[in-house]
Structures are given as structure tokens and as C-alpha cells.
Simulated scan of single mutants.
Amino acid sequence: MSQVTKEEEYMVFRNWDKELTEENLREQIAQAKQAWKTAEATEPRAESVQYNQSEDLIVIKLKNGAIFCFPPKLAQCLEGASPEQLADVWLPPSGSSVHWESLDVDFGIPELVAGIFGTKSWMAELGRKGGQAISSSKSAAARKNGKKGGRPKKNISVNS
């Protein structure tokens, strides 16, 4: 078993600026309650969630009446899930997140509404794949530009 040096101990506990006392604990609880009230008043919250198998969409009805939906293939850890697993989705009473127990997956509602469907590396990979998208109009434009000699050169004017 290895010894923990004073420096390592400091690194582990550096966020503990105050000694834990009854007064500090009450202050932290009050701050947490205020943060919760602020989040409840300003962040989107879900009223219901379901998987629509016929359209292959996760549908979230927000408490403000808006409806948000997305295809599961966009979300990290949902892309390969079965329809039964996707249908096994639930909300906590706060409506702040969605959970898939059988997949061990959780997403915050504010993050989903903001278009965040996973980690930074997952989102980067989604963007990379999106940039590779091929459509008939994209292919036709590439062929047309190729016949003209490729992309037009940029005109650079030099003022003297």
C-alpha cells in the first residue's frame, strides 16, 4: 500500500477551503437551495418523455409546452439501443433529466435542448461525420465545379 504525500493530500482536498462546521453546512445548504430555485425558474424542465418507435425519435414535452425531440442515433450510448431499451425511459419528479436504467444512461434536459448529446469527443465525432455527408446536390455541385477547373480562385487585390 503506497503512502500519500502531503502534496498529494493537498491536491485531493484543495477544494475544502473551510473547516466543516454546523454553520458552514447550513450556509452550503442555503446556497444549494438557492441554486436549485434559480435552475427551476430558468432552465428547461421536462413534463414527459417517450420513445416514438415509428418515427425513431425520443420525444420530450417540456413544462413550458414546447416539445423537443431527437433521433437516438445522435445521443452517446443510445445509438445501438433496441426499441425496448429506448422505450424504458423515465423522468425524475424535477423533470431536470432523462434516464435509461437498462442502458445506464442519463442526460440533462438543458444539455439536450442545447444540442449536447454526449461528451466533447462524441460531439466532435458527430461533427466529423456530418461534414462527410453526401447528397445528390453536393455531388452535382462538386462535378460542376470540377468541370470549371475546381473551386474558383480568390481574387486578391493589392493596394499600393
Score class of each variant (00 low, 15 high):
Trp90Gly: 04
Lys33Met: 04
Thr38Trp: 14
Asp88Ala: 13
Gln53Ile: 00
Ala141Phe: 11
Arg151Leu: 13
Leu86Phe: 01
Leu62Ala: 03
Phe68Glu: 00
Glu79Ser: 03
Pro110Tyr: 06
Gln85Met: 05
Ala39Gln: 11
Glu8Asp: 12
Ala141Met: 11
Asn24Cys: 08
Lys129Gln: 12
Asp106Trp: 13
Asn52Ile: 02
Gly65Arg: 09
Gly80Ile: 07
Leu86Gln: 02
Ala30Leu: 00
Arg143Gly: 02
Cys69Ile: 07
Ala75His: 12
Glu23Ser: 09
Glu22Trp: 14
Leu25Gln: 07
Trp122Asp: 10
Lys61Tyr: 01
Tyr10Thr: 05
Glu55Lys: 02
Ala41Ile: 08
Gly108Ile: 12
Lys37Gly: 09
Gly115Asp: 06
Pro44Thr: 09
Ile67Met: 08
Gly118Pro: 01
Arg45Glu: 03
Trp122Ser: 05
Pro93Thr: 04
Gly146Met: 11
His99Gly: 01
Val113Ile: 15
Gly130Glu: 11
Lys154Trp: 07
Gln76Arg: 11
Trp90Met: 05
Lys18Tyr: 12
Met11Cys: 10
Arg128Gly: 05
Ile156Gln: 10
Gly131Ala: 12
Ala66Gln: 15
Lys138Met: 06
Gly127Tyr: 01
Leu78Tyr: 08
Trp36Gly: 09
Ala41Asp: 04
Thr42Met: 08
Leu74Val: 05
Ala30Cys: 00
Ser157Gln: 15
Glu27Gly: 07
Pro152Gln: 00
Phe68Gln: 03
Glu9Ala: 12
Asp56Asn: 15
Gln28Asp: 09
Ala87Arg: 12
Ala142Gly: 03
Cys77Gly: 06
Ile134Gln: 10
Asp106Phe: 12
Leu78Ile: 04
Ala39Trp: 10
Gly149Cys: 01
Gly130Ala: 11
Gly149Tyr: 05
Ser94His: 08
Gln53Met: 07
Asp104Cys: 07
Ile156Pro: 05
Glu47Arg: 15
Cys69Gln: 15
Leu57Cys: 02
Gly131Asn: 14
Gln3Leu: 14
Lys63Arg: 14
Gln85Ser: 06
Glu79Tyr: 04
Ser135Asn: 06
Glu43Trp: 00
Lys37Ile: 08
Leu20Trp: 13
Ala114Ile: 08
Gly80Ala: 07
Ala75Phe: 12
Asn159Ser: 15
Ser102Gly: 07
Pro71Gln: 10
Thr5Asp: 02
Met11Ser: 14
Ser94Met: 06
Ala30His: 02
Gly118Ser: 03
Gly80His: 13
Lys63Gly: 04
Ser97Ala: 15
Gln53Tyr: 02
Leu91Trp: 10
Pro152Ile: 04
Phe70Asn: 11
Val12Tyr: 14
Phe68Asn: 02
